[in-house]
Write a protein that binds this DNA or RNA. Structure first.
Lengths: 119, 119
DNA sequence: ATTATAGTTGAGCACTTGTTCAACTGTCAA
DNA sequence: TTGACAGTTGAACAAGTGCTCAACTATAAT
């Protein structure tokens, strides 16, 4: 009898059991994929890359990426909510910076991967 | 006069120019964000994590993740197209394996980030 | 106070994406 | 060769996502 939610038996029960036992708490794996999802948008990854070079204000980011302030601001909010960037106001400008060194590391690994794949 | 595609001036032209000069070819940054996008789905990240533990066939993955073979197969195709997994047939089973060590590294960095953020 | 510019926000809309469903191929066993 | 099961595929649909637009707040200059 196939499993309730699937349409097949477990064929290699030993492997499945072993992997299932090692499986991290679902929440953590979900949070990791959420992190990737947030980084997996063209606009947001460009913003993160830019902020890794320099802190920048919304307007400069908009100019750099040829987008409206509104569009940038919406994406910055998503990055703020995920604690990937911080901001501080200086007069009329709001400057954003990366909030986490890991982001830089994750980016570097992804670059390595992509560059190697292209060769 | 505001920029054609934005609604503001460049406020800190020096910063924008410097960052723009360092900007990697658009294509590479796009490919990096595509990689994150692919890893940024709950199902796919679970599959990648599982394959990092052991090579597995479609049915076992379906059982492990409580999903249908079809749903798993669709996601495996996306991972195959991105060259993140390879497969080989053995009789009626098709076994999948990770195609790249970088995936493991990227995952590890992302785990570090997530675990630290939780503290 | 008024004006101008930086930035934020919510609603709306077009587009994308993941799963389901049904039909299909591939391999093995009887 | 027929049946059973592993796996793939395309269409369809529901849910999610990113940008636009317009209205808003905040700060500074006149």
């Amino acid at each position: 009898m196939a499993h309730k939610d699937t349409d097949c038996e477990i064929i290699h029960a030993d492997v499945v059991d072993r992997v299932r036992a090692k499986m991290p708490k679902d929440m953590i794996l979900n949070e990791v994929s959420t992190l990737f999802k947030i980084m997996g948008d063209k606009t947001r990854s460009h913003i993160l890359w830019a902020l890794d070079q320099n802190e920048m204000c919304v307007c400069d980011l908009a100019a750099l990426l040829n987008m409206t302030k509104s569009a940038i601001s919406h994406q910055l909010r998503i990055l703020r909510d995920a604690h990937l960037v911080r901001f501080h106001r200086e007069g009329k400008n709001v400057f954003y910076v990366l909030d986490d060194d890991h982001v830089k590391n994750i980016f570097e690994k992804a670059f390595e991967h992509t560059v190697e794949k292209k060769q």
